[in-house]
Amino acid sequence: MFEARLMNATILKKILDAVKDLLNEGTFDCSDSGIQLQAMDNSHVSLVSLTLRSDSFDKFRCDRNLSMGMNLGTMAKILKCANNDDTVTIKAQDNADTVTFMFESQNHEKVSDYEMKLMNLDQEHLGIPDTDYSCVVRMPSMEFARICRDLAQFSESMVICCTKEGVKFSASGDLGSANVKLAQTSNVDKEEEAVIIEMQEPVTLTFACRYLNAFTKATPLCNQVQLSMSADVPLVVEYRISDLGHIRYYLAPKIEE
């Protein structure tokens, strides 16, 4: 028996919004420790890794490890049927071929349940090595989303250059070029507005704008985003999900032909 309850549907709706543009389907691996989803996008250029910890759920029971393959488009449709302040319970029997989403209104007067067929997904699971990154940038997630949107107008690719002075985002194409420089915040009054750079070595890497823009769909989950970079390895874009866990996107850098 698997049962996981959250007192508020909003967070689950935001999580689905953050992954459904990149992934059509995914396997949710459920265990005592929580729920994990790891999946590559269709073109296998990026990887999404979602971790939700069991102790942050309002109720969590997982008698046996369970892998549930879900169509994320269908799951998003079902979650749209929940009001933001509804309690959500996800339930499945052991070895079941369906999962049930139950929504309960705050006054307990409306209860709805939606059953969804599970899928058998033959997905590759990739091992992500522990890496000490040369540069780690923390910045407001809205600012990152804005920069990705603005620079995508100029080129398919964006160069991110990080030094101890700051981080520079650049794009150039037939229309012209764009550069946005952010200096490290000197005086942190509000932590969520700060730009903080931890640098061991300067890094310059090039990434496809369309994936970065897809990652910014997670912006409503967290005020801050963390970018971790080292030469010649995938970028990590991480959004924390309050005390529940995190979503990390990995993106392979472009390399010169």
């Binding site: 296998h44 590759e124 699971h125 995938p234 392979a252 472009k254 010169e256 032909e257």
Partner: peptide, 12 residues
């Protein structure tokens, strides 16, 4: 050139 993510991370 755009490499795949699997060229960086090995299969588990």
């Amino acid at each position: 050139m755009q490499p795949t993510i699997a060229s960086f991370f090995k299969k588990d």
